[in-house]
Amino acid sequence: MPRRLAIEVKNLWFKYPESEEWVLKDINLEIEEGEIVAIMGENGAGKTTLIKHFNGLLKPVKGYVKVFGLDTREHTVAELARRVGLVFQNPDHQIFASTVLEETMFALKNFGWDLKKAEERAVKILKELGLYKYIHTSPFMLSGGEKKRLTIASVLVYDPDILVLDEPTVGQDYGQKRRFAEIIYRINREGKTVIVVTHDVEFVADYIDHVIVMAKGKIVAEGNSTEVLCNDEVMKEARLLMPQLGLAALMLRKHVEFRGNFLRLPIFIKEVRRWLNDA
């Protein structure tokens, strides 16, 4: 049975009211339920603008966006937000409450949950994301990585079917990134669709299989991350740096008979072994 479409974008054109230039030009996109997808591209490519269409913050000027078949033009942000959780790039743009618990419960209160249930749910999520010990602390006192996790918690708490993360790995150390990957995998195992906007090629290479690349308001490539991220032309157009292993393979290929593209170390090593044996 084919899986349901979580997000369907058809001939989407968009420009901001105060400017003349099209920021999104004829975007077509289908994301299936239960997928993990990365959206990549240079600064100003239109990634954030695109994901703001997924919960109706922005409405298409031309074309349409559907979320589980719901046309975003016909539903309010509050309605769509229940299905699509959007986590913004900078935690400072949303943190306001006096305690971590309050901050996490904010969405639940907005959606009219019973207070006791809301608290139970928030506590559960905070435990899962390793923030339980800060439950009565001011969110402003948390470290950068913890704030970021808190913003994810404050969205995950209401159990959206689709989670969209804008630049979750910016300014995070290696350990934090691993942690994000674990969180992403875990919620994906629960059947949720996860969309990650990022510049971080190595992060995508390590953890995400399906990637969409944008440049200047258009989608310039889509597909398996090994193929897309190791494609020299696409990466140049999107002004992204190829992942280290992809680069290594590219260079090696100039000198020796080396097959395929590589993003992950074990497969790369296997290919090196094969070549050594042949030689």
Partner: peptide, 9 residues
């Protein structure tokens, strides 16, 4: 936008 995404109306 961020607060509306969390259901603020």
């Amino acid at each position: 936008d961020a607060q509306r995404s969390r259901g603020l109306e």
